[in-house]
């Protein structure tokens, strides 16, 4: 029930990435169709792929913003305070928030991966450039942890008093995450580092939420 509540609460904010993912799919299909009819396969495809990566990066920032906004509004609207007085514990509330975020991250990634797969299937030559030995898997793995780390950082910073840290903190820390992806690429090692960052951010957010006064 708590998970359902959190999913409903996040639904409005998830519209943008979902629409974005759908737009990417539409773009991929239409541009590829256009490219095939005009014999300009790689030029258009490369542009699409670049925008594909850009969206992935933007989503890390977006999830950080959502985490921050979620804890900021939670604190101001005293939602968790109310929920804590029902037959729930803080651990359950936090777990529900995290699970809801994971569900949305997975939905968005599945849609993006779907677009990528369609791209591979449509291209007649299926260039190695687009899927060099499991790039798709590594990309999803890295992006998942990047988005979750962004969300965890957002949750953590959103509980701070004032507006500056909840607003700009997640932005700065997400840029650090993105820089790491840019430097290391969508590699397994980058994914593992991001996984550790996500675990640390969520662990600290959980510890803070479990012990802080709920106004």
């Amino acid at each position: 029930m708590l998970i359902k509540r959190e999913i409903e609460a996040l639904a409005v904010y998830m519209l943008l990435p979902l629409v974005l993912a759908l737009v990417v799919i539409a773009l991929v299909i239409s541009s590829e169709t256009f490219a095939r009819s005009n014999y300009r396969q790689l030029g258009v495809s490369s542009g699409v792929v670049l925008s594909f990566w850009g969206i992935s990066g933007f989503l890390s920032l977006y999830f950080a913003g959502i985490g921050s906004y979620q804890s900021y509004t939670d604190r101001n609207a005293k939602v968790s305070t109310f929920l804590c007085t029902l037959a729930t514990t803080r651990h359950q509330i936090f777990a529900a928030k995290t699970i809801a975020a994971v569900v949305y991250i997975l939905i968005v990634l599945i849609l993006l991966a779907g677009a990528y797969v369609i791209l591979l299937m449509i291209l007649p030559s299926r260039p190695v450039l687009l899927n060099p030995s499991g790039l798709l898997g590594r990309m999803i793995f890295t992006a998942f942890w990047a988005h979750l780390a962004g969300y965890g950082l957002g949750l953590l910073l959103g509980w701070n008093q004032g507006r500056i840290i909840p607003t700009f903190g997640p932005l700065l820390l997400s840029i650090v995450i993105l820089c790491m992806i840019l430097i290391k690429g969508f590699s397994l090692s980058a994914g593992v580092v991001l996984m550790l960052a996500a675990a640390a951010a969520l662990g600290r957010a959980w510890q803070k939420f479990s012990t802080m006064p709920l106004q």
Binding site: T81, F82, C84, T85, L86, A87, T88, T89, Q92
Partner: peptide, 12 residues
């Protein structure tokens, strides 16, 4: 626990 909390009504 959640069960124990469920036995407590609270009017804030």
């Amino acid at each position: 626990t959640a069960r124990q909390r469920g036995k407590i009504g609270y009017v804030a």
